[in-house]
């Protein structure tokens, strides 16, 4: 006959074992779906890989040849311009937060708003740019798409810049200021240099985030079946092309959609791994 204490101990151990097994199962369950999704994307994507993807334009309905060249070029232009617009403003705003209004009410408010912007539904930003840019300029345009994506780049860069600048030791600022260096030079030549890996990581993460964004492009950049580098008109882009081709009844279009999905996934994973690597190397060199 076990004592009360022994029975209690046994019960606690059983409860503990059960919940640990459950948590392990949850982890397996979560990973199972994610691995499955990646597996599907990779197998179907590799299946659809061919040289013509990179040399031919998106095909008209029913045709069994063609590639994604115009969509990829358009995506590169739209995303590149979005980063060029969003990142400088983001870095400036992050600097303002970390160096000028840190610990102040205004800083808290801007950080709060920025965090909301960071998680705001991207389709809403698309609508916003539609009403402000597309309506006033009179039509879908690559520029409108870039502006919509820039609003997604902005909060990501603001946040990382702010966090990375605040990690720079205060002594660096004090040492430079005590030598009579004006504050803007301290920020640009010393703090930015110290925080550069972190800020670059933020910009790369923002790039990864926008390269698959579809919703904000649906009614800003729209889509274009032909080769077009004219950013004042509708520009072809990968995400919207994938969206249209995946929902179409044509088998070849579906195949192209998977190829596009595969390209985007590989690109996003590469960019995020690079971003993490840069940050990791910085951490190691500091230790």
């Amino acid at each position: 006959m076990a004592t009360v204490a022994e029975r209690l101990f046994l019960r606690r151990r059983i409860v503990n074992g059960l919940s640990l097994v459950l948590s392990g199962l949850a982890a397996l369950f979560g990973l199972f779906w994610l691995v499955w999704i990646l597996w599907t994307t990779f197998t179907k994507g590799v299946d659809a890989m061919s040289l013509s993807l990179f040399t031919e334009m998106t095909p008209p309905p029913g045709q069994d040849t063609g590639g994604l060249l115009n969509a990829m070029a358009g995506s590169l232009m739209i995303s590149g311009l979005a980063v060029l617009m969003g990142a400088p403003i983001g870095i400036a705003a992050g600097t303002y937060l970390a160096e000028y209004v840190n610990h102040r009410k205004l800083g808290e408010v801007i950080r709060f708003v920025n965090d909301i912007l960071l998680s705001a539904p991207s389709i809403v930003l698309g609508l916003f740019v539609y009403t402000v840019v597309v309506r006033t300029t009179g039509g879908f345009s690559g520029y409108a798409g870039s502006i919509a994506l820039a609003f997604i780049v902005l909060p990501v860069v603001v946040r990382t810049t702010d966090e990375m600048l605040r990690l720079v030791p205060i002594q660096m600022r004090e040492a430079a200021l005590s030598l009579g260096v004006p504050q803007w030079k301290v920020t640009v030549q010393i703090l930015y240099r110290a925080a550069a890996p972190g800020i670059i990581t933020g910009v790369l993460l923002a790039l990864a985030r926008i390269s698959g964004e579809t919703a904000p492009l649906l009614f800003t950049a729209f889509n274009n079946q032909y080769w077009s580098t004219d950013m004042t008109g509708a520009v072809a882009n990968l995400p919207v092309t994938i969206f249209q081709f995946a929902l179409s009844p044509f088998a070849y279009w579906n195949k192209l959609a998977w190829a596009g999905a595969f390209i985007i996934t590989v690109f996003v994973l590469l960019v995020s791994v690079t971003a993490r690597y840069i940050l990791l190397r910085k951490k190691m060199s500091h230790d």
Binding site: G90, A93, L127, T131, K185
Partner: peptide, 30 residues
């Protein structure tokens, strides 16, 4: 240096306010 400081401060302040205004503008436009 003073002009530089003044300029830099205002540039980053405009960017900071831009974040605030974006959210308000997005809500209002819709």
């Amino acid at each position: 240096d003073n002009i530089g400081d003044w300029l830099f401060r205002n540039i980053v302040a405009v960017a900071g306010w831009f974040v605030l205004i974006t959210l308000a503008l997005a809500a209002f436009s819709m």
